[in-house]
Amino acid sequence: MSAQVSKVGQAGRGKVVAITGGARGIGYETAKELLARGYRVAIGDIDEVRLKEAALELGIDTYARLDVTDSESFGAFLDLVESEVGDLDVLVNNAGIMPTGHVHEEEDAVTRRQVEINLLGVIFGTKQALNRMLPRGRGHIINTASLAGELPMPGLATYCGTKHAVVGFTEAARQEYRKAGIQFSSVRPTFTNTELVSGTAGVKGFRNAEPEEIARATADLIEKPKPFVRVTKVAGGMVTAMKFVPRRVAEGLATVLGGENVFLDDVDQEARKGYLERIRQS
């Protein structure tokens, strides 16, 4: 079987894209956007029930349970994509989790899970994709990072650490393979209205992004590759500006905007309960 395209567009020209964490949130919306632009899309996710529902909703035939922390699982997913859809042109390493809370209270299992999914999953996926792309001398790997990978946020220390690592890994890999025909990009969203931010109010003065915005930015990166994109422009501009002001000023501004508590004391834990239970079971 091959992936069905909901609308044939000129932009995609039949390119094959595999998306991790494609059953919901940013991954789901990215698949939807790419299908509309004429790409052939396959999705993987660890949640098999939701994965099947998403594939049916999107009109995608090629999908598979994917544990991004298992290199063999990742390899099997990409093998399936290439056997059913075609040679892999683009891999979007999107899967990720974002628990909140104080570092000293974070369960070791939750810490480990963030590192495994958010970072090792990206590295494993990149290696598996490179092994397929390098012999062909073409391909594009897009890693979903975060503006939290550039600007620290209390209550998200481990998450920030993993996203800092994704930013660094992607840039190093981009330079390593820039002469081999392989493109590397990172997408750096602000906090986005998905399950990841359930129970949180956001930073004062800055709106959360919508997953459709991240999807469009990812699709645009495929069509016009560049090293990274920040979404939203306002939040991205703020993050850039904060790098050029004294630390005490930056930290003082964060306090004024409520950044010190938005992922700590101001979190509605009951509203996040379902999300946290799901990621612990994944």
Rank of each mutant, 00 (worst) to 15 (best):
E223N: 06
Q269F: 07
R37H: 08
A18Q: 04
A217D: 02
Y28K: 02
L35D: 09
Y63D: 15
F228W: 14
D70Q: 08
F263N: 13
Y275F: 08
A271I: 01
E82S: 09
L34H: 13
A64V: 15
V239P: 03
V231F: 00
G27K: 00
N118Y: 01
L130H: 01
G205K: 01
E57H: 15
L56I: 09
T194S: 12
L91G: 07
A11E: 14
E48F: 02
V68K: 13
K179V: 09
V249S: 01
E171Q: 14
K233E: 13
T192L: 15
G9I: 01
V249E: 02
D47V: 00
I97R: 06
A36E: 07
K7C: 15
P211I: 01
E82Q: 14
A241M: 06
Q4C: 08
N118G: 02
R230N: 15
F77I: 03
L88P: 09
V49Q: 12
R248A: 04
Y275C: 07
G139A: 10
A76G: 13
K243L: 03
L56P: 02
V197H: 07
E33I: 05
I26K: 05
Y39G: 13
D108S: 13
D45R: 00
E48P: 00
A129K: 02
G86L: 12
V234S: 11
R272S: 04
G86W: 10
T126P: 02
T240A: 11
I43Y: 08
S83H: 10
L56S: 11
V92T: 01
T30A: 09
G44I: 00
G236E: 07
E72S: 12
A148R: 00
A148F: 05
K226P: 04
L196E: 06
L264W: 02
H140E: 07
D70N: 13
